[in-house]
Amino acid sequence: MVNPGEKVKVRVKINGVEYEENVSPRKLLVHFLRDLGFTGTKVGCDTSTCGACTVLLNGKSVKSCTVLAVQADGKEIITIEGIGDGKLHPLQEAFSDNFALQCGFCTPGMIMQAYSLLKENPTPSDEEIKDGMHGNICRCTGYQNIVKAIKEASKVRP
């Protein structure tokens, strides 16, 4: 138990590497990640609407602006920096090949959600992609190419 104003120890594994930090309980997971240098994860709306802060927590996609860093204690996190293994992940390739991004701000969240979706459903239909991705907002592309890219990536499973 920690009192208001005190810090709490958080131990997590991020993209396979262990980190231990003392944080205030009110610190959000997205700020925790960004302060450690994982700035691929974006703060978009900060109201759990846009999905730009999506990361995987113990294999499940979550909006890291709506999770406390302390809730991640003892868990594994995967961010956009952790999916490529030194080269671009097939999803990243497909987003690039299909012009599925313009300004790119929503892209890390889009890709992390798509990553999570394909883990659960490796061969989604267009409808299933739209349903699985509706927690992520893009203000540039109009979504068509995002759906196309995810469909394409689903055919080139790593």
Binding site: M1, E6, V70
Partner: peptide
């Protein structure tokens, strides 16, 4: 946006949680 400061307790049994609440 940050919430205002709060303390944190993660109980391991329901009884601990209820006592605290």
């Amino acid at each position: 946006m940050y919430p205002s400061e709060f303390g944190y307790f993660k109980p391991s049994t329901l009884k601990e949680a209820l006592d605290f609440l």
